[in-house]
């Protein structure tokens, strides 16, 4: 562990401030708690919210997994994992099953989460109403009165114009029947994993200075219409590496003649499946 800084980098008063905000966040599911976000040694927009949340919750006995786009090896995931290995000396892991805390950008792992695990999401823009109304004073009022008509109208306009809802990711959800929430820029594919999950979901937006949460076993419903139900992405072929037909796939361009290859975005899931296949063989 590198010296000169406190365990997990943040000083204790900062952690206490974050911890108080986190407790409010779980008590008011989906509500964005303002917090006095600190400058971190990594740039705003690169996961500082998630890093602050992780730093506030992390203990010596935790096993931390960090993913970006579902992968443990992407540069930003590597950088954040190293940061905590260095400043907290905690064990890190690539395995979803073995992790106690999983910090993520843009994905929820394919391996079902378990009770006792904590997901920490990095959030760029926490406010689901932001593109409809840029003013915080106004969006706060809308949340206060659960005045979400504008969002329904926006989705309905999509249906009227394109025949379907065109929001591809960061698809708005209603938490515990009350607060409209951005699930962070995860694909629609991952939205159903939020609903009644046994794991605790924590969301940190560092630059925007907001923390929010979904407790375990809490209803998280993607907005939709009866005649236009919420749908997730699908592919007409399985993963080219492990053959999974039920995971989120990355499209990889293999040549300049239209060649495409589709592989699991969740690298741990893909590798586990390959290992299992090898053992069986």
């Amino acid at each position: 562990m590198s010296s000169g800084y406190n365990f997990a980098y943040l000083d204790e008063p900062t952690k206490r401030m974050l911890r108080r905000s986190l407790l409010k966040a779980v008590a008011i599911p989906g509500y964005q708690v303002p917090f006095a976000s600190r400058e971190m040694p990594l740039p705003f927009g690169w996961g500082t919210g998630g890093i602050q949340v992780t730093a506030a919750i992390l203990g010596r006995d935790d096993r931390l997994k960090v993913i970006d786009q579902g992968a443990d090896d992407t540069t930003n995931a590597v950088s954040i994992r190293d940061f905590f290995a260095k400043t907290a000396g905690v064990a890190t892991t690539l395995s979803t099953r073995d992790a106690t805390v999983i910090q993520t950008r843009h994905r929820i792992p394919e391996t079902p989460l378990q009770h006792g695990q904590i997901m920490v999401f990095q959030v760029p823009i926490p406010e689901p109403l932001r593109w409809l109304e840029p003013r915080e004073t106004e969006t706060r009022r809308m949340h206060a009165f659960a005045d979400y008509g504008a969002m329904h109208l926006k989705l309905y306009e999509d249906v009227a114009r394109y025949g379907r809802i065109t929001t591809a990711y960061d698809y708005p959800v209603l938490v515990a029947g009350r607060y409209l929430m951005r699930p962070s820029p995860i694909p629609r594919f991952d939205n159903p994993k939020l609903d009644a999950s046994p794991a605790l979901m924590l969301f940190g937006a560092g630059r925007e200075k907001r923390i929010y949460a979904v407790p375990p076993y809490t209803s998280v419903k993607s907005l939709d219409f009866e005649d236009h139900p919420f749908t997730i992405e699908s592919w007409d072929r399985p993963c080219a590496r492990c053959g999974a037909a039920d995971s989120y796939l990355d499209e990889i361009i293999t040549d300049d003649r239209g060649g495409r290859r589709f592989v699991c975005s969740d690298t741990d899931h893909c590798n586990q499946r390959l290992d299992a296949k090898e053992k069986a063989a």
Binding site: G45, G70, T75, R105, Y248, D250, E251
Partner: peptide, 17 residues
């Protein structure tokens, strides 16, 4: 500066969506 430059980070999951 952080948020403008974060566009350099991979976004291929969202792009796929």
């Amino acid at each position: 500066s952080g948020f403008v430059q974060h566009l350099k980070l991979p976004h291929y999951v969202d792009f796929q969506a």
